[in-house]
Each structure stands twice: as structure tokens, then as C-alpha cells.
């Protein structure tokens, strides 16, 4: 069973994503900001990260930069999931090492399609 870390400061979004990902067969963990997420990755590297952009303490982009510096940090497939939906943000995320990008609002169909595209399903 693959694991996915859901990183979002919204409890509701984490809950929705968890439900969808569990149905897709993922074991999930949650983090409410980049710092907590980084701590989780240091303890156990997930197969995938579903990552919000705007969060307190450490945002998604900063988290991604730090993640990719960790030993084995290039392994998780990172899918941004954010309200930032302009080309500049998307380009910045790809440059930082994101594998895919979901523009909120999202639904199970989009999440499934994106996870399939990057080979997680």
C-alpha cells in the first residue's frame, strides 16, 4: 500500500483528500504546515505528497525546496494542490521539483487523474 502525506492548513481539505486517497488505496498521514510535514518526512519518507501552497510557518514551496534536499527526498512524488492558478506559480512549482499540479477546487476525478498521470495509480 502506497503512502501519501497530505499537507494543508485546512482541516476540511485534509479530510476530503484523505477520504478520496483512502478510497484509491493510499495510507495517509496529515500535516498542517511545511514544518510539520518536513518532520514527518524525516521520520518516514512517503511515496507521495499532496501539497498546499499557502500555509503558516512554512509554505508549500519552501517545504518542497527543503524536502528535495533531504536524503531520499527526491523519491516522493509531489502534487501541488492549491488555489494559486496562474502560469507563474505553476512554473515555479515545476522548477522547484513538483511532479504535478492541481488547481483548487478539485474533486476525486481530478485527483485520481493526476495521480494516474504520475504513475501513483
Amino acid at each position: 500500500m502506497k503512502s501519501c502525506l497530505i499537507v494543508d492548513d485546512s482541516k476540511v481539505i485534509r479530510m476530503v483528500a484523505k477520504k478520496i486517497l483512502n478510497e484509491l488505496g493510499f495510507r495517509t498521514e496529515e500535516a498542517e504546515d511545511g514544518i510539520v510535514a518536513l518532520d514527518r518526512c524525516i521520520k518516514q519518507m512517503p511515496d507521495a505528497v499532496l501539497l498546499d501552497w499557502n500555509m503558516p510557518n512554512m509554505n508549500g514551496l519552501e517545504f518542497l525546496h527543503e524536502l528535495r534536499k533531504l536524503p531520499d527526498g527526491d523519491r516522493p512524488i509531489v502534487v501541488f494542490c492549491t488555489t494559486e492558478n496562474d502560469i507563474d506559480h505553476i512554473q515555479e512549482a515545476i522548477t522547484a521539483g513538483a511532479n504535478e499540479y492541481i488547481m483548487k477546487p478539485f474533486d476525486s476525478e481530478i485527483l485520481q487523474a493526476k495521480f494516474s498521470q504520475v504513475g501513483l495509480l
Binding site: I90, E109, A113
Partner: peptide
Amino acid sequence: FEVQRGLPIQMLVKYFKK
């Protein structure tokens, strides 16, 4: 919604304008 079903993000950035 339509550009998020099947279209890889790299293709969106490369071939689409908002």
C-alpha cells in the same frame, strides 16, 4: 476543470495561456 483531466501540467504550461 477540463484542463485538469488528462493534461500533464507541463503541457498546460507549454501550450496554454490563461
